[in-house]
Amino acid sequence: MKENTALEHVGSGADRLDAFFTRRGFVKVSGAFVATMAALGLLPETAAAAPTSSKGKIDYYATPSHVLKINRAKCTGCQRCEMSCTLKNDGNSQPAAARIHVRDGFFYGSELGSGDGIYYSCEWNIRQCHMCTTAMCQTACPHGAIITDESTGVRSVDPEKCVGCGTCVAACPYHMPVVNSVTHKSTKCIACGRCAEQCPNGALELVEWENVNHASGPTRQENPDPLISEVQDYVGGGKVA
């Protein structure tokens, strides 16, 4: 039998967003500087034309150094990634505030009717930060609270500046950031890789940055089973009147 290696991707649209900004030449301020940096091999080309800060001010250009690559077929739904994430980054175990999401798709996939989840296909999405070249969470933040780490290019939330408004959540094509229901601050992935260390199935891998928009796995079944609640004339597997 052939081994499972990578997964086909059903496009989410985020990749097209990146192209949109690139074509528009959105970055003007220091284009020449960036081009030089890229020519010297100091920045990947994909980063060169991407705005990375809010309020029109550009403070850094590198794509993040790392990104999580996932294989949802290997995910067994234990959700240790979520607990490990918050234990490391928040000092408590709070899956709903984790920077990686399994719990909300575990039962029914990306949405009811997707044909996914433990009740249907037994597949569900591991939603992870794509470490976008154009970080919409960052550009949308009205408080400039999502900052770029100068050494890694990873964006993180500055809790001092964050007011928990949720604009980043809405702006992210994947709705990855979460406003913590207890601290009322946003959180996002910083590519620390702790989730991957504790994944018992190797479904997560922290890799050097690459475009993972094409590798996240499908978000629904091509021919999903009809919902039980909509077609159900079975109780206990038997047709009942």
Binding site: M1, K2, E3, T5, A73
Partner: peptide
Amino acid sequence: AEGGPIETGEPKPGEPN
């Protein structure tokens, strides 16, 4: 498995993943 068979293989002690 989605995308093709996944081998259970020989997972050994010392391999958390």
